[in-house]
Simulated scan of single mutants.
Amino acid sequence: MSIREQTITVLESLRGVWDELAVDELDHALQSAARALDDGADDELVLAAALHDIGHSPLLAAHSEAHDRVAHDWLTPRFGVRVGWLAGAHVAAKRYLAATDPAYAGALSDVSIVSLRLQGGAAVDQDLAGHPWWPDALRLRRFDDAAKDPAARGADIETVVAVAERVAAAQTTRRA
């Protein structure tokens, strides 16, 4: 299956999957991508923003691992270490922001508060916080949090697929 087909399949598998109350996971993914594009993010960060919650997909959720780990493991071989790392760090970024920014913690949705508790609560992971990609993980987390509005526009699937194809092609070139 091509990268195009894999990306479309995993995105479409998010339709009708509800983690938040306001939007399904497909709308959440497309809104996350749109927020990243609006912020001028590079292709790898846009793709990580779009696909950070694929661990909730019924195609992948059978794994016993946490959804951020599932996303990391699915994304890395297809799109490279940075995309996988960024998606895999989005829960740690939430935990970090909740621990270090009282305004952030106070603005979490009810669903996010419950999931934060299940994810170990507010905490700072010094290993991740010192990583060179950490600032982009925090950006991704902000895109994630802003992507829960039923009235907000999202990117279209074709835009995300085009980004995925560019990132995959760049990975192939780096390996060659």
Rank of each mutant, 00 (worst) to 15 (best):
G106Y: 08
P102D: 14
A87P: 02
V91M: 12
H56G: 01
P58L: 15
G84K: 00
A147G: 02
S13H: 03
Y96A: 09
E20Q: 14
H67Q: 08
R153L: 14
A162D: 13
W133N: 10
A147E: 02
A34L: 11
D144C: 13
G55M: 02
D127C: 06
A22N: 15
P77N: 11
P77E: 07
T172K: 14
H131P: 07
W134A: 05
E5L: 07
T76H: 03
G120D: 10
E158V: 12
G80T: 14
W133A: 11
G88R: 01
V124L: 12
V17C: 01
H131D: 14
A137I: 10
H63N: 13
R117E: 12
P102C: 10
A48R: 10
S112K: 01
D136W: 03
D110F: 10
A29M: 02
S64F: 04
E5K: 05
A137C: 05
P150I: 09
A162H: 05
R35Q: 14
L60A: 04
Q6G: 02
E65P: 01
L59W: 00
L11T: 10
A87Y: 00
V163F: 02
K94H: 13
S13W: 04
F143R: 00
D27T: 15
R82N: 03
D19Q: 11
W134E: 04
G121D: 06
D73P: 05
L37P: 00
L59A: 04
R95N: 15
K94T: 13
G80D: 10
H28A: 07
A61V: 02
I54T: 03
T159V: 14
G106H: 14
A29Q: 06
A71Q: 07
L47R: 00
L47C: 03
A137L: 06
T100Y: 03
H63F: 15
S57R: 12
L60G: 06
D136M: 07
S109E: 15
H28R: 10
R166G: 02
H52L: 05
S2E: 12
D38W: 04
I54Y: 00
G80Y: 04
D156T: 11
A170N: 09
S2M: 13
L86K: 05
L21T: 13
D27V: 07
R15A: 14
V161W: 08
A34E: 11
S115L: 12
H28Y: 08
L140I: 11
H67F: 13
L14N: 05
P77G: 12
Q6L: 10
T9C: 11
G121W: 08
W134T: 01
L26P: 07
A147K: 02
A49Q: 01
K148D: 15
V160L: 07
A168D: 01
V91R: 06
A152F: 04
A66T: 09
A49R: 00
A71M: 10
D24R: 12
S57N: 11
L26V: 09
